[in-house]
Design a binder for these strands. Structure first.
Lengths: 166, 166
DNA sequence: ACTCCGGTTGAGACAGAGTCGCAATCACAA
DNA sequence: TTGTGATTGCGACTCTGTCTCAACCGGAGT
């Protein structure tokens, strides 16, 4: 609760500083995102809010998400193959994502050694690094048995071992 | 030329193994991608082929790109904010991308230490790693002066220094 | 508490990227 | 050369996200 309060204050300040208003729609979307820790798509948010008998339009969702991202308290990430997902950010919180191709689960990770190697690479090419996006995809621990079963069932449609590649 | 020949053989084999045909459209798209080393969007490929008086439809471009990616000789990457770009891959060639936000230039990099740390992270969470996508964005060496100038011109619309954040 | 004004909303049109169904066409093996 | 199943082009469609605009509302000033 204290955490939410803090982010709400930041958002309020952000709006105030540019003469924008904290409407009930903006407030509802804020609450929805900060009420749980998940990686949500814009349309999921729309559905959830409407399920809570909150009248809100798609356009407002997108417009508000833009404000939230811009204010720095919400992050926008490409996780699936189409569209973005939004996640709340705590102050100073940076992480990248590990995504299970079977169940879709998203795990956040932070590896300082990767972060610093990124800086090295950027420096090597004379780049000023502004942002990065790093996703790793695979099969999570609990999907491994299922993945194995599926692999056996289909006669590996895509596996073209190098023995056949020429 | 020898390199192209090799990839064409792989593609031929790939089609053959699943009873698919090497049509003139597929061949033309192959040539377009392997004729130069760039990161192209589907529609750019369409335009280029039509400019060469090759009659081809958008649907075929997409369908063929899928085959090329699936056969392993072409890579599909999200580089901009909308859509994918396609790039030819040489055997065993893996790299990630550094993208300039000003000029759009794409630089490929490979940092083995990052690759191996990725394996460590995956192992830490019990993940079987299948793929990853890693992009770094920023300002390239030659755009730095231009970027600086632009920053001075606009009175930094988004910069909300922490001194004002509460 | 009331007013007023500029910011905000909802609805639906629109845009860009990509997919799909189907009739006509083509590759390629016999 | 022929036959047949794969492939193509077209246009309609989907999905994600943006835009326009008239009606509406938040909140500062009174």
């Amino acid at each position: 609760m204290t955490t939410e309060k803090r982010e709400l204050q930041i958002f309020r300040k952000y709006l105030e500083r540019r003469g924008l208003k904290l409407t009930s729609e903006r407030r509802a979307l804020f609450d929805e995102i900060f009420g749980r820790h998940e990686h949500l798509e814009a349309d999921e948010l729309l559905v959830r809010l409407r399920a809570k008998h909150k009248k809100i339009s798609r356009a407002t969702i997108y417009r508000t998400l833009e404000l939230l991202v811009d204010s720095g308290i919400v992050g926008r990430v490409r996780i699936g193959d189409q569209g973005y997902r939004y996640e709340r950010l705590r102050a100073g919180d940076h992480h990248d994502h590990l995504i299970c191709d079977f169940c879709g689960r998203v795990i956040e990770f932070f590896e300082p050694r990767i972060e610093s190697l990124q800086d090295d690479v950027a420096a090597r090419y004379g780049f000023i690094l502004l942002s990065h996006s790093h996703q790793m995809r695979g099969i999570c621990r609990s999907c491994r048995p299922r993945a194995k079963a599926a692999e056996d069932r289909f006669s590996r449609p895509k596996a073209v071992p190098r023995s056949l590649a020429e």
